[in-house]
Design a protein around this nucleic acid. Sequence first.
DNA 1: GAGATTAGCGTACGGCGTACGAAAAAGCTA
DNA 2: TAGCTTTTTCGTACGCCGTACGCTAATCTC
Lengths: 256, 256
Amino acid sequence: MAISTGAGDPDRTLPLLWRRELGVQTGSRGPKQRVSIDAVVEAALALAVDEGIEAVSMRKVAERVGIGAMSLYTYLPGKAELLDLMVDEAVGRAPREAGRGSTPRERLELLAREEYGHFRAHPWLLAVDVSRAPLGPGSSERYEYQLGLVEGLGLDDVDQDAVVALVAGFAASVARVAIESERTRRASGVSDEEWWGRNAVVLERVMDGSRFPLSGRVGQAVGERFASAISADYQFEFGLGRLLDGIDALLAEVRP
Amino acid sequence: MAISTGAGDPDRTLPLLWRRELGVQTGSRGPKQRVSIDAVVEAALALAVDEGIEAVSMRKVAERVGIGAMSLYTYLPGKAELLDLMVDEAVGRAPREAGRGSTPRERLELLAREEYGHFRAHPWLLAVDVSRAPLGPGSSERYEYQLGLVEGLGLDDVDQDAVVALVAGFAASVARVAIESERTRRASGVSDEEWWGRNAVVLERVMDGSRFPLSGRVGQAVGERFASAISADYQFEFGLGRLLDGIDALLAEVRP
DNA sequence: GAGATTAGCGTACGGCGTACGAAAAAGCTA
DNA sequence: TAGCTTTTTCGTACGCCGTACGCTAATCTC
């Protein structure tokens, strides 16, 4: 399933995202709301952490906050909007310490580590399709923070955007494979060794030496060097080094 | 949603993936199967292309091949395995022309363009969580092909793996944002201009000039330069340049 | 107090993956 | 040829999901 967001009407979603800035517009008549939107979002976040994003259903979220399932719809238009709020909240809580780096390279490296760590700590985030999610305070603040890391380096505006997108996208990309392999390992309840052992019987029948020579050699080397658990971490370190080298070359050209 | 795969038992999935190499093990007694696994996979692929991955349900796939929904379970253990087969099939069909590049840099550039183009052409692929998906013939052949592009450059086995993963991961990462923004644009049925116009009312109230100065300036520059449709394409070109610069620097060090 | 408004929520609908078991088809054995 | 065994087919059903609809009850305004 694609846990997707962004399908909601922006006219409905934006005021929800910026609810703290705009103030809650609740009617004065009728019964008071028994809980708050923040409590709903918080419950959904907790549920995602505890049981994974696919366990976040309207019924379960409602149960967590102590109201009926359909009562949720007096707080939110639907599930898509709830996911929007969850994502913006989580993005807004990512650390913002990369400004401490003393060189541009160091700042971008810290940014990449921050993003990587945040996605590893909140794996459900990458399982939500966020396509043109309405701009909320969390993602806006993070974007502003990221741009601040490359301000004044001689890059034009478009390339400032491109650099931070490149670094953040790289971190998300590696985090995604790390998370996916970790989740499957957990779900299957089988260690890497046993998993490969069970595969070996079939694979050896099929991979006669001549058909996949490089894969056989390289796959073995990778497998020997790393438990696949930490293979993603090496991917991250290796890729980050290359990426920062490439960005440094650009910065050297444009240095003001 | 996370349309997830890899939950299946590899003892069941691997023989399905390598069915052409191993031969189909169908019992001789009883009724003949009315269709083939290949027909099932093909129908699922067509369905994913026509209506998107979230429309791929067991009931609809069965209807497309002309059997009852529950009959599918005599071909496959479940939906997870069907997704495994779809992904491996689609990956195996990606073009493999990057070997024509005359320099390592050129080959990796072609690889990135190939991957990017393939994901753009088969957007449903990136919506499937493939975590430690059992190795099938399609992904095995592609991995072998990718490794061939960086063979003999002086990289050790582990870094050969890391380089191709970096380039392919980058392409997938940019393709993902391109696809997601395109899908949302289509789903909302609203042009970029109109979408921003509807957001502007709320955003202007909230983004007083002082809170997000960089975002405001850069966001405007990006918006003016690109319709957001082609913004991903610039991200790709920009990122690819930096990435290849960084890899080139490494290759210059290790050149044999 | 009367009326208007709004939150809460029970019920229900159409979708999903798939467990279960009956029916039917085909080959093997006697 | 008759009966048995194996295997495919598939109708029904269960428990999930998101959410449309409409009633009840709480609370403010007049």
